[in-house]
């Protein structure tokens, strides 16, 4: 790692102020950022830790019935506290990384980083969640803008993610054998007004909605509704672990399995 200063504010306002410095960067759980720093792939002047901010911690339900998760809430806490309210989200959280990673890694960190193989972005997008920052609310459909790219501005902090709770939902992750990230992950969420399907791990553009499947499933929420549907391999990631064709194929398989598990 290059040298950097460390600051650990206790309020969002202090954090925002600290991040105003040149080349300052927020540090949440650090499970992605610290390995990146070890490779000297980033050179922040200062890391501003978000883990000491009490208002960014925890899981609760708001008046609209949405599940509100503080941006600095670790995966393990989400896994435990969302279990009864939003089981599919809890299950997703309980399979990110490993137990030690889940004790440090946070939802805000994951959503802010938007790794194309991360699990959370699929839940956020499929749930139609709202990403709340220190100065605005961003709809999931507007938030994700491609590989490691989001609507966040420099110095903007995810303070909370608000999930509408679907009637039924499931996440199916097919792991990349080395990293155990998603080679393909599909999150299916059925709401009263329709079904949303979000896919992670597969596309060169990061997480995306499979609208054709959504339409079919909104009409008939059963695995059979997906018969004959497929995703084009164009734009899918090709690497050591999967060709674009394989990933496209897995999307259909995992979507069917998610629907079967949810219904």
């Amino acid at each position: 790692m290059y040298a950097f200063d460390f600051e650990k504010p206790t309020t969002v306002a202090e954090a925002v102020a600290a991040l105003a410095d040149d080349e300052a960067q927020p540090l949440s759980g650090g499970q992605t950022l610290i390995p990146t720093l070890k490779q000297r792939l980033a050179m922040p002047s200062k890391l501003v830790s978000l883990t000491g901010i009490a208002e960014m911690q925890g899981v609760c339900t708001n008046d609209a019935g949405q599940l509100c998760i503080g941006g600095a809430t670790p995966h393990a806490v989400v896994a435990a506290e969302a279990a009864s309210k939003y089981p599919a989200l809890s299950a997703l959280a309980s399979n990110i990384g490993d137990p030690a990673v889940r004790n440090r890694g946070t939802i805000g960190g994951s959503v802010a980083n938007n790794d194309p193989a991360a699990c959370y972005p699929s839940a956020v997008l499929a749930s139609g969640a709202t990403v709340v920052t220190n100065n605005r609310e961003i709809a999931a459909d507007d938030y994700f803008q491609g590989l490691f790219s989001t609507a966040l501005e420099e110095g903007e902090i995810i303070t909370e993610v608000r999930f509408p709770v679907p009637q039924a939902a499931n996440y199916q992750k097919f792991v990349q054998p080395a990293s155990r990230f998603a080679l393909v992950g599909v999150f299916v969420a059925k709401f009263a007004d329709g079904v949303r399907v979000a896919v992670t791990g597969a596309s060169n553009d990061g997480v995306f909605r499979w609208t054709e499947a959504e339409k079919a499933l909104s009409a008939n929420f059963s695995p059979d509704a997906l018969n004959g549907l497929s995703v084009s391999a164009d734009g899918m990631i090709g690497d050591l672990h999967g060709t674009p064709e394989y990933r496209a194929h897995l999307i259909a398989v995992m979507t069917k399995r998610a629907v079967a598990a949810a219904s």
Partner: peptide, 17 residues
């Protein structure tokens, strides 16, 4: 760390204040 398993290679010493 505070009763939770953590990878100490992926946590800054200052985070353990």
């Amino acid at each position: 760390v505070n009763g939770k398993a953590v990878k100490s290679c992926t946590m800054l010493a200052h985070e353990a204040e």
